[in-house]
């Protein structure tokens, strides 16, 4: 589905340093029963965010009013496990447009790019710099510039470039998804199929 174009994003950051955060944590299976793509943000990180009675757990970062923003700063190997795209829908629905980590799981990364959440892979050292800066000052802002492929810590100007393939980059900048591309070459696909 079409999503908002992504060019530059400057935002404060929500830090989540836990490693190996799997998609079962991002959205537990019992919340996957919808037949439409709406309202998943309410259950984002459900079991870390709420106790069994549904009361917010004060020590979880999403319940901490100190932190907010459109960028999630995550620990390494973020998004492993189940292929559920609902995990990205939940992040998007909650308001995140970008996830920064030193390492992403493959399917999760693909899913992000398909629905307009930008995954930015940074070096482990830079990730640590970002965590430290946000911890020292929660109002710290980060700027992600997709055209330049840079991520910058505004307070110090420290910056790193990130990888994204040219095709996906253009998609993100225009709010396109792959299906538009594929629908345009259906004839070619049909010929390929016939060759068997």
């Amino acid at each position: 589905m079409p999503y908002d174009k992504f060019n530059t994003l400057t935002s404060t950051v929500v830090p989540l340093p836990a490693e190996n955060v799997d998609t079962d944590q991002i959205i537990p299976a019992r919340f996957l029963k919808a037949t439409e793509r709406e309202g998943f943000g309410d259950n984002l990180f459900r079991d870390w965010r709420y106790d069994v009675e549904g009361n917010p757990k004060p020590d979880f970062v999403l319940n901490n009013p100190t932190y907010s923003g459109k960028i999630l700063l995550a620990g390494k190997n973020f998004g492993s496990g189940s292929s559920r795209e609902h995990a990205v829908w939940a992040l998007y629905d909650y308001g995140f447009r970008c996830v920064v980590s030193s390492f992403f799981a493959d399917i999760f990364k693909n899913n992000c790019l398909n629905i307009g959440v930008l995954p930015v892979t940074v070096s482990a050292g830079f990730a640590q710099q970002l965590f430290d800066a946000v911890e020292a000052d929660p109002s710290t802002e980060i700027t992600v510039d997709i055209a330049q492929q840079t991520i910058t810590l505004n307070s110090t100007g420290a910056s790193e470039t990130f990888d994204i393939n040219a095709y996906k980059k253009e998609n993100m900048q225009n709010g396109f998804d792959d299906i538009d591309y594929l629908l345009n070459i259906q004839e070619e696909i049909r010929e390929f199929e016939m060759k068997g």
Binding site: V88, I107, I179
Partner: peptide
């Protein structure tokens, strides 16, 4: 992911 499920249904391909 589900976006790709949609692509396969529509075009039998993914990218």
């Amino acid at each position: 992911g589900t976006s790709e499920v949609e692509m396969v249904l529509a075009t039998q391909c993914i990218m």
